[in-house]
């Protein structure tokens, strides 16, 4: 059976902004950053990466008992519930922009949102970091 990727690919290499945090972020900070990014125009999608946190202990004598990690929880972004399964360390923000001017404007807004909410600092780069069209791996 064919399954569709979770996010629809743009099909063309739209620019992406990589926000690479200097510190691994708490769930609280992640929530703040996402809510600050939420109103910014032309954001097509946001992907996050970080360090995986399991729900239950997956090995050792305590295998199966709840992990109870304070940073693995449900946060609210734009009024919607988002389940965090990672301690977030980077954001990949895909921008649906048509020219350099629009891009610059969006990037500056993103930078301002991060500046206000990531006190331990971050690095920001613009480029293309993820796939934008289907490849063989999407047909499984």
């Amino acid at each position: 059976m064919l399954s569709e990727p979770t996010v629809e690919y743009a099909g063309i290499p739209l620019p992406e902004v990589e926000i690479f945090s200097n510190a691994l972020l708490s769930a609280e900070t992640t929530e703040k950053v996402l809510n600050a990014l939420d109103p910014i125009e032309h954001i097509r999608q946001i992907n996050m990466t970080g360090e995986s946190i399991s729900k239950n202990l997956n090995s050792g004598p305590g295998k199966g008992i709840p992990n109870n990690h304070s940073e693995r929880k449900v946060i609210k972004v734009g009024g919607k519930d988002v389940e965090l399964r990672f301690q977030v360390g980077a954001f990949y923000i895909e921008l649906n922009v048509e020219n350099q001017e629009m891009l610059d404007e969006a990037v500056e807004k993103i930078r301002a949102a991060c500046d206000a909410n990531m006190p331990r600092g971050f690095s920001l780069t613009v480029g293309r970091y993820s796939k934008y069209r289907k490849t063989l791996r999407d047909y499984k």
Partner: peptide, 14 residues
């Protein structure tokens, strides 16, 4: 891993 916001080393089992 990068340290967390409090300067602690990441631990998936906290």
């Amino acid at each position: 891993c990068r340290l967390d916001e409090n300067g602690l080393m990441f631990d998936a089992w906290q």
